[in-house]
Design a protein around this nucleic acid. Structure first.
Lengths: 158, 158
DNA sequence: TATCGTCTGACCATCTCTGACCTTAATTTA
DNA sequence: TAAATTAAGGTCAGAGATGGTCAGACGATA
């Protein structure tokens, strides 16, 4: 039995799939009532399952008549790579976010399953810990390695 | 009378055989309860009986509604990989040798061009020099990263 | 009896969910 | 029209619910 977060994610993705627009609009309070949970649970779902790394954009407005809009982003066919690299450098480097990004790249057939597995190894901390590097330095190296690797992929078409 | 590990292994393999999917999904806690043992026993079984060497891949998720998925892999390509990894570990790690190896793997169509480019980035010293690591430590990290990456390729069939 | 495979339990990491408190926008009221 | 009220949504710390790791006890067997 899936958990609440999975259920709400499913529901929103179905709404998106049915929508004529490239987005859906909901009210946090209403949605929370529908799933019998606290409103902040909705924010949790949005943060975890509808992040930019996963290909979504969320807008909202507070106050009377407030709303939340969830946009499905399309990677531009022209140069998906630049976008990916920029989205990686835009926010702080964070292994879990990178893994989500890799999953999405695989789902959108921008990289192969094997490539996503290869790139995922770069995000692991184990080796650096064993060699006595600080977490900070490890993260810096990971970030750079990932950038170099993505630059390589950029050079060679599928 | 077979032991617990054997029983749990049997049970999971029967589940796999019956499953329509190429995997089964269980909950560690539930499974442990079913066999009246501690949860970590499940990890032991997975490690010993469902390892990549034996042709399985295990994924999991923690937290509420967590799960463990066990995938049955195709093992046809497993053997050439073991040789490659062992040839890498047999002699001292040396970037130039690795590049030759990657070239050969590409020529023999064991890895793709893109994969060889990805793996090649791991052998570069630049990043480590910038971060002030000794050449020795850099080489050690490169060696381990490469090993992990090759292990990943071993897991995933094309 | 030495060794190797099993099994346990304490402690850790991660993901989910809630509730108290905060911010913002629209509407009503003085 | 300015202030007060109402009606949204946002943030964050902490509790709860899983699964992971590891050292060491235990047990079978050569």
């Amino acid at each position: 039995m899936p958990n609440l977060t999975d259920c709400i994610e499913d529901y929103l993705k179905k709404l998106l799939a049915l929508s004529c627009e490239p987005y859906v609009e909901v009210q946090r309070r209403e949605l929370a009532k529908k799933f019998a949970c606290v409103p902040s649970q909705i924010n949790y779902v949005l943060e975890r399952r509808f992040s930019p790394e996963r290909g979504y954009l969320v807008e909202s407005r507070r106050g009377g008549g407030g709303w939340i809009r969830i946009f499905r982003l399309k990677t531009s066919q022209a140069s998906p790579w630049r976008e990916v690299i920029e989205s990686l450098n835009g926010r702080e480097y964070e292994p879990s976010r990178v893994r989500q990004l890799l999953k999405r790249l695989y789902e959108e057939k921008i990289i192969s399953r094997r490539e996503s597995f290869l790139l995922e190894t770069v995000t692991r901390d184990r080796i650096y810990e064993e060699k006595g590097l600080s977490k900070k330095k490890a993260r810096e190296i990971q970030h750079e390695l990932l950038n170099e690797a993505l630059e390589e992929l950029l050079k060679v078409s599928y």
